[in-house]
Design a protein around this nucleic acid. Structure first.
Lengths: 146, 146
DNA sequence: ACTGGATTGCTATACATCATAACAAACAGG
DNA sequence: CCTGTTTGTTATGATGTATAGCAATCCAGT
């Protein structure tokens, strides 16, 4: 007996749909990235470090909306895996940069992500497809500066 | 110095935008619901129990995509708060139903949720607004049956 | 009616994410 | 030079989620 037979007031709620869509998406992407030993947060951090060489962990955390305290295990994991290097700039701050190995791993990750993003959009009916990204971005980008 | 000054390859990725939008949304809704002592999962469970009186915890978990094991604390919490009642039907299964107090609390929750969902949609540019729900639903509803 | 397989509720456990508070060291501006 | 802020870090707790296992019960095919 399909659960579908039951009344589902939730699927009319954009907020709930947003939560379910996001968690389904994350679970699938995490599964794919785990095959190259990365978590989805690791991959996003690598993307940002590449685009902004020599960022500090704090600045990276601000972009990713991750607390300083929670950046410690993230950065430590990437460093332990030999994907990034830390270099003191201040005496207080460290700059982050991809190693050769980090660049290579990021290339693999990017292939997985691009493939995944394409499939994700492909599941959306064509008439709605182009509206998703701007609608979603409106929900958090302005939020960030506020 | 705004983090905005940095290159942000992530905001072009629908998957990342989905994750960020969802977590921002959840955090805000959770904050509002906490004022009446509910978590967002509690509220969704109450909505579904009301719409499907006498569901079992397992069936509810299937609708919410929550493992049986993780339903135990959820149902226990709602029962301890006097919001739902459990009645054996089988000898194996229990049926769930809202108490009077549960109905009252749900009315409060629904007011908060309706207000919130309205504001959420209001943040989206008008030309994209109507596309969000169908696009999001396409990302998980079919997934569910698969 | 019997038996094997599935279901229900539950415990225990582990991990990921996220938040908060506190701290020392170091920076930055007036 | 002094004060307030920033950085990196430790520690801790709440939450959400996943897995495995278990005993009791249900159900379906024979």
């Amino acid at each position: 007996m399909p659960a579908r037979a039951m009344k589902d007031p939730l699927s009319r709620l954009p907020g709930y749909a947003l939560r379910r869509a996001a968690s389904a998406m994350i679970a699938e992407l995490a599964g794919r990235l785990s095959e190259i030993g990365l978590r989805h947060t690791d991959a996003s951090a690598l993307l940002l470090i590449e685009a902004n060489e020599d960022v500090t962990a704090s600045a990276l955390g601000r972009m990713l909306d991750i607390q300083r305290a929670n950046m410690v295990p993230l950065v430590g994991r990437l460093e332990a895996a030999g994907l990034i290097e830390r270099e003191p700039i201040d005496g207080k701050s460290h700059s982050l940069r991809l190693t050769a190995r980090g660049h290579a791993r990021l290339a693999e990750a990017r292939a997985i992500i691009d493939q995944f993003e394409g499939e994700l959009l492909g599941r959306i009916p064509a008439e709605h497809r182009a509206h998703l990204l701007p609608a979603l971005n409106a929900l958090w980008i302005n939020d960030k500066s506020g």
